[in-house]
Design a protein around this nucleic acid. Sequence first.
DNA 1: TCTGGGGTCCTAGGACCC
DNA 2: TCTGGGGTCCTAGGACCC
Length: 367
Amino acid sequence: MRSVRAGQTGLVGEPWVLHVDLDQFIAAVEVLRRPELAGRAVIVGGRGDPAERAVVSTASYEARAFGVGSGMPLRIAARKVPDAVILPVDQEAYLAASGEVMSVLRARPGATVQVLGWDEAFVGVESEDPESFARDLQHAVLEKTRLHCSVGIGDTLVRAKVATTFGKPAGVFRLTEANWLEVMGSRPTIELWGVGTKVSARLATLGITTVADLAAADPDGLVPEFGPKMGPWYAQLGRGDGARTVDDTPWVARGHSRETTFQQDLTEPGQIDDAVRELAAHVLADVAAEGRPVVGLTLKVRYAPFFTKTYARKIPRTADPAEVLAHALDLVAKMEPGRPVRLLGLRAEMAMPEDSRQGHTPTRSGW
DNA sequence: TCTGGGGTCCTAGGACCC
DNA sequence: TCTGGGGTCCTAGGACCC
C-alpha cells in the first residue's frame, strides 16, 4: 500500500486529497460512441424501453433541463422529454471507459488512487500547487479518454469530496479547514456526503438544520438519537473532519447480489422457485470468480411497491453451488404464500480472506 | 408519477450462555 | 418466587452511496 496523508509536511510539498469526478459519465460515454447524439437529450436507463418498469440511470445536461434526473421512472422521463434518445444501460462499456480513466490517474507522477465507483476516485498527492496538479490531471484525462472531469481539492477526504460539487462542470475547487464553514456553514445538512433525507429530518428535530449547527453540536449529544457510532460520526461530518489518507489497498467485496424486478408480479409458487434458481446462478458465478466460500444468504422480496421484506440466514461455510442453492430455496419457504411478488433479490455473503486486511471500503467507515 | 440494481455499514431486539 | 448483568451471535430493518 502506498498512501499519502494530507496535513503532514513532505519534501515535495503539502499532502493533498483530490477527488476526481467524471461529468455526466454514462451519458458522456454514450455520446462518444454516437457523436450524432451530441447536444441532444440523452436518457440511459433499464433496457431502454420506457414502457417497462425501470428508472433513469443518467440523463445528459440537455435532458436534465427538462427536469429529468437519476432515479426517476423511465416512463415519466420519456413523457417529460418526448424527443429524448433513450438508451439501454451498457455496463461493460462504462466499466471499460472507467478502467481507462483510472489508468490515466494512476499514471500521474506521485499519485495514489483510491477508486470509489465507475466515475470517481480519490487521488492522494504531495504538491506545492494542487490546482496545477488538478488541471494537468484534467487535461490528461481529456486527452486520453475524451472525457471531462471535475476535481475537488481538500485536506480531508470529506472536504475534497464536497469540494467537487463546486467545481462542476470541468472545474477545480479547494475546500479546507480554513474555508469549510465559510463555504458550507449556512448550507442545509443534507448537502453533506452521508446525510440523506431521513437523517437531515431527524437532525432538524434536534434544532440542527445547517452544517454550522452540526459542526457546533456536541458529538456525545447526538448519541441518544443516532447511536454510539453514527452520532459522533455526523458531528465530525459537520466539521468536514475525518480521514486524510488516500488508501489504494485493493477493495475486498463482502458479498454479491442480484435483483430482478418483474414486469408482471409473480403469483405462481413454481415461478418463484425458478426465479430464485436463476438469481442464484448469477450470484454463484460472481462468487465463484472470487474463489471464496459463502457464509450467509439474504433473500429480498418486494410484495408491493412500498413493502419489502428480507429473509436472512447464516449458512455453514461452503463453496458448493448445490448447497448454496438448497439454502436459498429454504429461504423461499419463509415467504408469505400466495402474495404477489414484484421483486426478488438474492445476496450471498462471502467469507473474508483470513490473512488479509479488510481493505478499503467506499463507505463512511473510518472516514 | 411511481419508484432499478449493486454495494456497505449501523442499530435494535431476541436468543442464548455463563 | 422472581429474575442480575455481561457478553456474543443472529436476524431484520434502515440509511446511504453511486
